[in-house]
Design a protein around this nucleic acid. Sequence first.
DNA 1: TATGTAGATAGATGCCTGTCGATCTGGAGC
DNA 2: GCTCCAGATCGACAGGCATCTATCTACATA
Lengths: 117, 117
Amino acid sequence: MPVDLELAPKQKRPAGDPCCEPVAYPDVEREQATRLANVAKAIGDPVRLQLVDVLRKHAGKVCVCELVPLFDISQPTLSHHLKKLREAGIVDSERRGLWAYYYVNPEALEDLSRWLS
Amino acid sequence: MPVDLELAPKQKRPAGDPCCEPVAYPDVEREQATRLANVAKAIGDPVRLQLVDVLRKHAGKVCVCELVPLFDISQPTLSHHLKKLREAGIVDSERRGLWAYYYVNPEALEDLSRWLS
DNA sequence: TATGTAGATAGATGCCTGTCGATCTGGAGC
DNA sequence: GCTCCAGATCGACAGGCATCTATCTACATA
């Protein structure tokens, strides 16, 4: 049964008894929604949210070895979370000698922030 | 090996060669971080993010039967997503006769919005 | 060259999640 | 009562994710 998806498709329903007004497609289209959702998903973990919180205050000045003791997780797990944040474009890193320094890329969060408000 | 967690614990490291400045615990404490992360996680799915988008514009005026055709998912799956949003406190519902009407609870998103900006 | 350290990667594991079809529930109308 | 419909729930399944231990890579320093 082909369904007209362009606008609110009206099912068969007692005439004169519409359950609601017609609904248009979301303003946020699938592609943009996926992008925003990916950012939201990335901060959808308490550890990662706190990581972003720390990095926003100490951008470029905190090495990973200082971050590990702040959380009750192993170093590889923290590295995994940082990778997730990197993949979502929320943070980026820079190596100086032995150490790696992470910083927040503010633009990534701006889109989501704009959509929320 | 007991580690002092109160503030930035200094590991053994060549004296006079600190990798970075001391880091304090995240301002956003674990509990609040978990709350914020749960909200972020709830909108961390493209379908749910678009659902919120639609409901913000048609709050209380859209029944579920109008939402289903907007997405390429089955009715039970959509019901599942709405439940997730309900559990996160982002939306709430009201039954009128046969139909269920959902609306966004703006407060739930405000906290996350504030944290982001 | 050998040793130690910061951080990333690999592989395993158990749990969580998105999806479906089938079924249940409860109101509306005959 | 019976039937139809909107929506929620159930049970199953595949894929994803957070976590760990073990290992690897790259740099620094003796």
